[in-house]
């Protein structure tokens, strides 16, 4: 303001400058505690959720044995109640697997197209299209699945009903696609240009460069994209609830109605009287879901660490 920068030490700093300096010093001193506090908040939140879910889940053992939780029948209101979560665990795995088998190749391919091959105009179009896909609420996906995908699956495979694991996988793949594709695209874009140049200069085609150099170099980022896509698929409730059919019967088939863990909780939480065996059993489903999420993330971290060590 007076034309002198703060570097001018020959003059005593003006009051305004002194205040500005004090403020900056304060900000510099505060940034570590603030970030620490924010990090702590998310950690504590996670811990609180975990403790709460587990605490509400444990009392179910007053009614049934731990091993019976992996039983094949879920009859929460019969006498005595059966809380076999196996059908829902299997269904969650099945539907997630199906979604990933579709979403990962498709997501990686579209990322490869957007990052490596598409001309700029097409790239922008494809990217905004993906963002649009990500912005659609899950209930809309569910409605689309219920009215379009499920009848289509039913006619194609000549089934009694199209509300089954396959329809759920298709919808989930569509929902996980933007996550997988945009994260994969980030990973591909982050591969240094010099790798591409080196490959091209050796007489590799664009396709060979993408496939043999860019993709392997981006492995850890691509892996992260796949894991987050998986998280999206495992955790989705609404859309699955609308298209999977929600039969609690145990099945390993994609062509039969299935009930996932999330759908199971959503379907029954409202009816379960607070504090009842059924209520605790539903929290146990939540704990299982949490465990699956932690296990996959842990496994992914471990795997990624191993690969990174090999790459060194």
């Amino acid at each position: 303001m007076n034309g002198n920068g703060e570097m001018d030490v020959t003059r005593a700093p003006s009051l305004a400058n002194r205040r500005r300096l004090a403020l900056r010093r304060f900000a510099q001193k505060m940034d570590r505690p603030v970030f620490f506090a924010l990090g702590l908040v998310s950690l504590v939140t996670l811990g609180v959720i975990f403790v709460f879910v587990v605490r509400e889940a444990i009392p179910v053992f007053r009614y049934v044995s731990p091993s019976s939780l992996l039983g094949p029948a879920w009859h929460p209101t019969s006498e005595p109640p059966l809380f076999g979560a196996l059908p829902m665990i299997v269904a969650t795995g099945l539907v997630t697997l199906g979604a990933l088998v579709l979403a990962i190749p498709l997501g990686f391919a579209s990322a490869g197209f957007v990052a490596e091959i598409a001309p700029p105009a097409l790239r922008d179009l494809a990217k905004s299209l993906l963002e649009l896909l990500a912005a659609i609420p899950s209930v809309v996906y569910g409605f689309f699945g219920l009215t379009v995908v499920a009848p289509l699956v039913q006619r194609t495979f000549n089934l009694p009903t199209g509300q089954n694991g396959l329809s759920a996988s298709l919808i989930l793949a569509l929902m996980a696609l933007p996550t997988v594709a945009s994260l994969a695209e980030d990973a591909l874009t982050a591969v240094p240009k010099v790798h591409r140049e080196a490959s091209l200069a050796l007489g590799a085609s664009r396709w060979q460069t993408t496939w043999r150099v860019v993709f392997p170099s981006a492995f850890s980022g691509l892996f992260g994209a796949a894991v987050l896509g998986m998280g999206r698929a495992v955790g989705e409730t609404m859309a699955v609830l609308m298209v999977a059919g929600n039969s609690p019967a145990l099945t390993w088939s994609f062509l039969r109605p299935v009930r996932t863990l999330t759908a199971g909780i959503a379907l029954e939480m409202a009816e379960a009287p607070s504090g009842s065996a059924h209520y605790h059993a539903l929290f146990m489903l939540g704990a299982i879901l949490l465990l699956i999420a932690l296990a996959t993330n842990g496994l992914a971290e471990w795997f990624r660490g191993r690969v990174a060590r090999q790459g060194e």
Binding site: H195, A201, L202, A204, P216
Partner: peptide, 20 residues
């Protein structure tokens, strides 16, 4: 261009080996 680049090789400013 692929064949051109195979027959006219190039070494760059900074060493850029592949992560292989």
């Amino acid at each position: 261009p692929v064949e051109v680049r195979r027959r006219i090789g190039m070494v760059f400013q900074k060493p850029n080996p592949f992560p292989k």
